[in-house]
């Protein structure tokens, strides 16, 4: 965890340093051609930052970069994961219906914690697999499997934002 934090900090510092040099704001007096290029470069750096700081996006990029299936061509999720999905969906429906605010809050917190733990494990594993593929190590997990795992991460993300919406509604109603 500490390593992840330090990595994120270093990445952000690099972003800030790069943008200080490249950003169009600092090239305004150098003519439109320079501003145009500065704008393009800044956009590229912004995109790279988004990719590097988000492990799921990074793994997804690696899969596509190596010619693996895209999000739209491989839509399956791992079999065992599907069982858990059904359970979570049920819990979520119950939470939406529930009328006791305190109880709902406790249920939400529990589900969120579970999803976050699952996500952390899944993403660490998947990114590892993707990077192993990138380094062309023999016996690495195949790209379609990595894609399916990433689909599972995407499911969790959607579930988390659905929970956030329930929480938001709860807070607004208060």
């Amino acid at each position: 965890m500490h390593r992840t934090f330090r990595r994120a900090l270093r990445l952000r510092k690099t972003l800030l340093k790069l943008q200080r040099l490249l950003h169009p704001d600092f090239h305004g007096s150098a003519g439109e051609a320079m501003v145009g290029i500065a704008e393009h470069n800044t956009a590229e750096v912004n995109a790279a930052f988004e990719l590097l700081r988000d492990a799921a996006k990074r793994a997804s990029w690696i899969v596509e970069h190596l010619g693996g299936p895209s999000e739209s061509s491989e839509r399956q999720m791992p079999q065992p994961f599907l069982m858990e999905v059904m359970e979570w969906n049920e819990t979520m429906e119950e939470l939406k219906e529930a009328d006791d605010a305190d109880q709902t809050k406790a249920g939400i917190d529990e589900l969120k914690a579970e999803l976050n733990t699952q996500r952390a494990e899944l993403i660490e594993n998947t990114l590892d697999n993707a990077e192993t593929q990138l380094n062309q190590v023999a016996g690495a997990t195949d790209l379609a499997t990595i894609r399916r795992d990433l689909n599972a991460v995407r499911y969790i993300d959607r579930a988390l934002s659905a929970i956030a919406a329930i929480e938001l509604n709860l807070a607004q109603a208060h």
């Binding site: 150098a30 051609a33 320079m34």
Partner: peptide, 26 residues
């Protein structure tokens, strides 16, 4: 006509910013 010059200038800015950096540095 200024485009090629602008490209060179911005390139050198980008290079100086990235000098000595590899993916592992992140």
């Amino acid at each position: 006509a200024t485009l090629p010059l602008a490209a060179i200038l911005m390139d050198s800015v980008a290079k100086s910013a990235m000098s000595g950096k590899g993916l592992d540095d992140f």
